[in-house]
């Protein structure tokens, strides 16, 4: 039986003077206990709204959301003790130290004073926050704030951990650190509900990926299943000179099974092919005789980016920071 369940969730917003926005438009999800579910989608796809519904922050207009059979909308008081939440915007008190933030959360989960302090100390150690321990959070890096926020989400042993874009806006090193922590939490059997706009993140952390666009799930499966659904192998070329792109496109068009894609900067091309290695050999021979110089050439399996592009018709944009509520 599924542990987290969304059935035909709808949530609309009516911006002043604008048309109604469907943040969620019939979202369905089933997440078994002890698994990691990723909700993958671009900004504005409805990821944050879905998390807000499940974490009792907003009520859906229609449809139902349940965790362990308990309705999230009507029994928020029974849901809150069993969830941990860490958001895209670190919800920490700037004026409190790292320790004080965690101790406060512990007390608000109704741990006793001593137990709460002990747990805060333990988490400071676990998240390597020793330098944040006794200094106000104000002035700390985004990565550090995010770690304090995530630590706050697991002060108690949550049955479900909600992570809303846990690494958005983090530098690559902090992102790796965050993945490390999440992987470890998952290893301990917590059910995790994760949203991300990074395909790599979903691929790496999740058991099951639901691709969400326009407030509903448009595809679902493991990373491999999703890639297989796009099918086939690809030839990818990297040109030395942009001037050769027309020639290269022409060659790829002859051997590919669909229209080749030229990157924006004009030097990277890709096309789907039926019988991979043989096609690659022919393509390389033709490019060679046409005197096209290459930086790189090879076969590759479709990435989740390809999946996303195929499913939504637009690329997964991870460029803009800060997802609107919608």
């Amino acid at each position: 039986m599924s542990f987290i369940e969304a059935h035909e969730l709808v949530k609309t917003y009516s911006p002043r003077g604008g048309p109604t926005v469907y943040a969620l438009n019939g979202l369905n999800l089933d997440v078994p206990q002890g698994t990691v579910q990723a909700l993958l989608g671009p900004n504005g796809a409805g990821k944050t709204t879905a998390v807000k519904v499940f974490t009792t922050l907003i009520r859906p207009d229609s449809g139902s959301a349940t965790i362990d059979g308990i309705d999230v909308g009507t029994h928020g008081d029974r849901i809150r003790p069993m969830i941990g939440v860490s958001g895209q915007y670190a919800a920490v008190d700037e004026n409190l130290t790292g320790f004080e933030n965690l101790d406060m959360v512990g007390r608000l989960y109704h741990l006793g004073a001593r137990a709460s302090r002990a747990r805060a100390t333990e988490l400071i150690e676990l998240f390597e926050l020793t330098e944040a321990q006794n200094r106000p959070v104000k002035g700390f890096s985004g990565g550090m704030r995010r770690r304090i926020d995530l630590a706050g989400a697991i002060v108690m042993r949550p049955r479900v951990l909600f992570l809303d874009e846990p690494t958005t806006g983090l530098d690559p090193r902090s992102r790796l650190g965050m993945w490390d922590i999440i992987t470890r939490l998952v290893g301990e059997g917590t059910t995790v509900f994760l949203t991300t706009q990074y395909l790599e993140e979903a691929d790496r952390l999740a058991d099951d990926i639901a691709v969400i666009d326009g407030g509903k799930v448009i595809a679902q499966g493991t990373a491999d299943e999703l890639k297989a659904s796009v099918g086939g192998q690809r030839i990818e070329l990297s040109l030395v000179s942009e001037a050769d792109s027309a020639v290269a496109l022409e060659v790829l068009r002859r051997h590919g099974s669909d229209e080749p894609v030229l990157s924006a900067e004009g030097r990277t091309l890709a096309v789907r092919v039926a019988e991979g290695p043989a096609a690659l050999q022919r393509v390389l021979a033709e490019l060679h005789s046409a005197d096209v110089a290459l930086h790189d050439a090879g076969m590759r399996r479709p990435t989740l980016d390809d999946v996303f592009l195929t499913l939504t018709g637009h690329a997964a944009s991870a460029d803009s920071e800060g997802e609107a509520a919608a």
Binding site: L57, R80, V85, V105, Y109
Partner: peptide, 12 residues
């Protein structure tokens, strides 16, 4: 600051 969201998801 978003800390209201943190408080609202706690059983307080």
């Amino acid at each position: 600051d978003g800390i209201i969201d943190r408080f609202r998801t706690l059983p307080m």
